[in-house]
Structure formats: structure tokens, C-alpha cells
Design a protein around this nucleic acid. Sequence first.
DNA 1: TCTGGACGTTATGTATACATAAATTCCGAA
DNA 2: TTCGGAATTTATGTATACATAACGTCCAGA
Lengths: 229, 229
Amino acid sequence: MAGHTESEAIETGLDGPLLLSERIRNALTDEIAAGDLQPGTALDEQQLADRFGASRTPVREALRQLAVSGLVDIRPRRGVVVARVTPERVMDMFETVAEIEALCVRLATYRMTPAERGRLLELHDEASRAAEAEDVDAYDGINAAFHETLYQATHNAFLAEQAISLRGRLNAFRRTQLRYKDRLARSIAEHGAILAAIAEGDGETASRRMRAHMSNAAIALRRYLELHT
Amino acid sequence: MAGHTESEAIETGLDGPLLLSERIRNALTDEIAAGDLQPGTALDEQQLADRFGASRTPVREALRQLAVSGLVDIRPRRGVVVARVTPERVMDMFETVAEIEALCVRLATYRMTPAERGRLLELHDEASRAAEAEDVDAYDGINAAFHETLYQATHNAFLAEQAISLRGRLNAFRRTQLRYKDRLARSIAEHGAILAAIAEGDGETASRRMRAHMSNAAIALRRYLELHT
DNA sequence: TCTGGACGTTATGTATACATAAATTCCGAA
DNA sequence: TTCGGAATTTATGTATACATAACGTCCAGA
């Protein structure tokens, strides 16, 4: 993929060791995504600087960038906190991602190369095996690859970037959910149905099925949120 | 609108005078969007600091945030330049925005309140009058309001934010284009067709028409790009 | 004249210092 | 004891200073 990603606009990926501010940004992103830094947590600049063995300057830069991504809230002169999102907002995000995914599938159906189609089938097989082995982590990884392959197959680099970015932002808030055993199997089945529609070249059907697929995940998520808040 | 916008995550909009870094960010955003700062232009930190009567620190913060938004490219230790986008990328962006708009219209059709529907019709009338008066600037403003009203009418605050943000990013690159007289009239007609579908509650048709509407604008843009590059 | 490398210059990346607004604490009055 | 406000403290916002990598220049050699 020739297109430059959001992050590449800063990192370039070529110039050897990352800048301090970049390393801090990545670390904080990971920690927020993993839930190590829970929503509402205050982020003290000096404290973070000490932790990373840096001064406040690169820490500040990292925090400002995280704010643009929506991962933290900055209240001028009142500090930075990990963004606290309401369940309604999470559902809004989920619906948005679902619609974007549906959109990507539709475009991808009409534009993907045979190689990309093959890659999707391959990933689907891998996912099935991971599901049978009940290896949830492996499934998660393959699942992400499946979706990202779809994004790339739209042959719209910008859209793919947006989709990846959105998916990442959602991940940051959907903690350790969706580990129900039957959800995994159903997810596989739903992927299969989507692939079938793609194989027939029916982008509209594929799109509808993807929306339903994401919607099912959202319903599971809503149940989770109602239980654990 | 209760939802907090991307930028509000930083500005809050309540705490009186904006931070220096915010003012600089806004100013640079406007200048890039207006084309005063052309793609490829190198942005010297000290120079900008002098211009804004500030030190390098807030300038740097502003530049980092612009990089996350994709308005500038930062190459570590090699400086900041206004993002140079290829025509292909602009077309990718345009297609993405078109699909998002189509998506918004579909959701909005099924969810908008009578008040929102009335507001759309009102804006449509205003736009018609501006078009007849050939007041392009007024039309631009009303047009933006029309689209933003549609975003809000999805009743998905996150999606609305994304749509506004994407539209803004596209604006930043589509210079002083689309001033063909007939394009304006056709744009009005297309809006009318979209509204008609909305009135009938036919979200799918409204969505298709919006996609076509944006596609027409994209075609005009492509012609412009091919001519002026 | 052209190529290549060393040197000097410049701008970025980071650290530190200072100003100021917000939060906290403490004290006095009711 | 409780409430209100002033003083103190703390952390953010900004400025400045320093280290270093990238760039340009200049000169030597072919």
C-alpha cells in the first residue's frame, strides 16, 4: 500500500529510532487501549515525564496528539484525563464503525483482486481453526487481519486509513468483552455468509450482512455495558 | 448539540480566551484550508513563532496537532510541510466523504425529527435564493449548514463529528473550485431530489441521490485538478 | 568542470526555568 | 460545627536555553 497512514505522517517509519514523544504517545495509546489507564484517570505531566525518563515537553506533545485522536480530554489549565465515554457514545461509535465496515465490504466486493479474495478465504479458514481451538487471542488477531484486508480491498487508501483508525478508537474502549463461546462460533458463521455474498459479487447483500454482523456484536457489547457499569 | 466535538476536546469553548497554541492551530488550519499556505510549503517553527508573537513551544504543539489531522506532514528532524496530496488521494477522500454523506442521509431519513426536516427545507429555500442571486459565498455557507444539519439528524453524535471532521479535511484541499454557474443550479436541483426522497421516507433512494450528488461534485473537481496542476 | 567529503550553519528535539490560573488548605466568623 | 474567603500550593502554559542531526557550502582532487 502506497498511501501514507495517519501515524506515518509523523513517524515516517524510516528514520531509525522513534522520537521520544512518539514512543510516549504509542505507550500511552497502548495503555489506554488495553484498559491499564481507565477512563477518568488524571494524567499528570510531570509524573509521566518521570515514568518515561523524559522532560515534560515530549509528554505534552504526546498528550496533545492523543487529544486530537479523542483518547484523552484536555481541559485548559485543568489537566488531562483519559476520555470518559458514555455507553450511548460507545454505541454511537459502534454503529458508525458498523456502517463504515458495511461500506467497505460493498466497495471491496466490486473492486478486490483475486489475490485479495484468496487472502480473505485463507484468513477465514485460519479463524475457523482458531475458533475450534478456542484460542480467543489468535482469533482476535485473525479477525483484525480479516477486516483490514477488506479495508485494503476497497482500493481507497484514505477510506482504509479511516476505517483502521476508527476501529482502533473503538478497541480502546471495548475492554475485555465478547468472550462468550457461542459468539465466537456465530461470528465465524457470519463471516462465512459475508464471504459467500462477496463470492457471488453481490456487494449489497455482503454489506447488509456485515452490518448485521457488527450489529450482533454491538448487542453483545450493550449487554456487557449494562451489566458492568 | 450536547455531544463534544473533536476540537472541543481541547478547546472546551467555555474557558474564555483560547490558549495561544489553540489560536495558532486555528489560524494555520484556516490558512491551509484557504490555500494561503500551499501544499509543500515548509513551516519554520521560529518564523511562525515570530509571526504570532509567541515562542516555539505553542507553535510546535499546534503543528503536532495539525499532523494528526493530516493537514501537515512532519518528517522528524527535517521539518514540517503543508501536506502535499496527490489527485488520487483527493479523489479517495472525496469518495469517502460521499459515502459517509450517503450513509448520513440514509440514517437521517429514518431518524430525523419534524423540526430537523423543517430546518432542511428552510435551508434549501435559502440556498435557492442565494443561488439565484449568484452569491457563491452565501451559498457555500448555507450548503455547509445543510450538510451539517443532515449529520445531526442521524442522531449519532459520533458519526456527525466524523462527518464534519472529514468534510473539513476535504475543504482544506479543494481550493477555490467549483465556481461554474451551472454547477450551482444543478447542486440545488440535486438537493431538492434528495429532500424529496427524505420526505417520502425512502432512505435508500435519498442515499443513492446523495452519492450521485457528491459524485457530480467530484467529477467537477477532477476536471479542475487536471486543468490546474 | 565535476565529484566527493569535511566543515559550518541552521533548525529541530529536548530540557529547564518562569508566570499564572486552578485547586487546596486553613483560618475566622456566624 | 459549618460556611466563606484568603493564602498557599500545585500543575499547567509559555518562554528560553542547550544538544544534535540534517542541510548547504566550500574546497580539494580527479
